[in-house]
Measured scan of single mutants.
Amino acid sequence: ELIWEQYTVTLQKDSKRGFGIAVSGGRDNPHFENGETSIVISDVLPGGPADGLLQENDRVVMVNGTPMEDVLHSFAVQQLRKSGKVAAIVVKRPRK
């Protein structure tokens, strides 16, 4: 059984690379294997702001206090874009 651990990460936006993450998932883009609608970190740019803080497959729980459960992919992207220079991101990942 999976035990999820929650992490809060504060990312500083890089002028060229943004937050250095890509997200997939969302209500309109469920996971191809299990139908899960979570917003998921799909890519972490090496050397970017999120490197060492976020991991691929982290589930995004909140962005700047806005819940990311059962939202559209575009909504999640929009929340990240409009967060200015700093984003507080809450993620969960299975305990190893």
Rank of each mutant, 00 (worst) to 15 (best):
F75I: 05
R59Y: 05
G20E: 01
R59W: 07
Q12N: 15
E5F: 05
F19I: 04
S15I: 07
V86Y: 11
P94K: 09
A22V: 13
P49C: 03
H73I: 11
I21P: 03
L53E: 06
V71N: 03
K96Q: 11
G48Q: 03
R27G: 03
L11N: 00
A87M: 14
L80R: 01
Q6P: 08
I21C: 04
G52T: 06
R95C: 14
V44Q: 00
Y7L: 12
G35Y: 05
A87D: 00
Q12L: 08
N34L: 03
D43W: 15
W4N: 07
S74L: 08
N57W: 15
V63M: 12
G48I: 00
Q12P: 09
G65M: 05
Q78T: 15
G52Q: 06
G84D: 13
R81N: 11
R17S: 15
K92S: 11
E1K: 15
D28M: 06
G47R: 05
P49V: 05
T10Y: 08
E33K: 14
F75A: 08
R93N: 03
S24E: 05
D43A: 07
I89S: 01
V9D: 08
R93F: 00
S38G: 05
N29K: 15
N29M: 14
E36D: 15
R17K: 13
P49N: 03
A87C: 11
Y7D: 07
E36F: 04
L45F: 15
A50Q: 00
F19A: 03
V61T: 08
I41D: 00
K13L: 11
E33W: 07
P49F: 01
I3S: 06
V63A: 01
A76N: 01
E56T: 08
R81H: 14
L53K: 15
Q55K: 15
V86G: 08
S74D: 09
P30C: 05
S83Q: 08
V71Q: 13
K16M: 13
E56S: 11
Q79S: 14
T10F: 10
G20W: 00
H31P: 14
K96F: 09
L80W: 03
S38P: 07
A22M: 14
A22G: 12
G26I: 01
Q79I: 09
V91E: 02
T8F: 05
L11Q: 01
A76V: 06
P46Q: 08
M68K: 02
T66S: 10
Y7G: 06
M68G: 02
D14C: 07
T10H: 14
L72K: 11
L54K: 03
V63Q: 00
A88D: 08
K85S: 09
G25E: 04
V9N: 02
H73F: 08
P67S: 13
N64S: 03
R17Y: 11
D14V: 06
A88S: 11
E69A: 13
I39V: 13
E56R: 12
F75Q: 13
S83H: 09
A88V: 09
M62N: 10
L53F: 11
L45V: 14
G65V: 02
D51E: 15
D58Q: 02
P49K: 01
L53R: 08
L2G: 05
A22Y: 06
G25I: 02
E56Y: 13
V77G: 04
G48R: 00
A76K: 01
G18P: 02
K16I: 10
A76D: 00
A87G: 09
V44K: 01
R95H: 08
Y7M: 12
A76I: 02
T10Q: 14
I39T: 02
A22D: 10
P46H: 05
Y7P: 01
T66L: 14
G52F: 00
L72E: 09
D58N: 01
H73M: 13
V71M: 05
D43T: 13
D51K: 07
D43H: 08
V40R: 14
D70Y: 08
A50F: 00
L11K: 03
N29T: 07
L45W: 06
E36Q: 06
F32I: 09
N64H: 01
E69N: 12
R59D: 01
S42C: 14
P94L: 12
L80C: 02
S42N: 07
P94T: 11
F32S: 15
D51Y: 11
V40E: 03
G20K: 00
G84W: 07
P30R: 04
E36K: 03
N34T: 15
G25A: 00
M62R: 08
Q78D: 05
A50S: 06
N29G: 15
A50C: 05
R81M: 12
K92E: 15
F19G: 02
L72H: 14
V44R: 01
K96T: 09
D28F: 02
A50L: 00
P46S: 13
K85T: 10
D70N: 13
N57Q: 13
Q6M: 14
H73V: 10
M68Q: 03
V61F: 07
G47W: 03
R93M: 01
I21T: 00
G20S: 00
K92F: 05
I41L: 04
L72M: 14
P30F: 10
K82P: 04
Q6G: 03
G20R: 00
G52N: 08
D51S: 13
A22K: 08
M62I: 06
T37R: 14
G26L: 01
A87R: 02
K92G: 04
D28V: 03
P46D: 15
D70V: 02
K16A: 09
G52A: 06
G25T: 03
D51M: 05
S38Y: 08
A50T: 01
K92H: 08
Q6S: 12
V61M: 14
F19V: 02
R17M: 15
A22H: 14
Q6V: 09
R95I: 12
Q79T: 13
R59H: 08
G35Q: 10
L45S: 11
L11D: 00
P49H: 02
G35H: 07
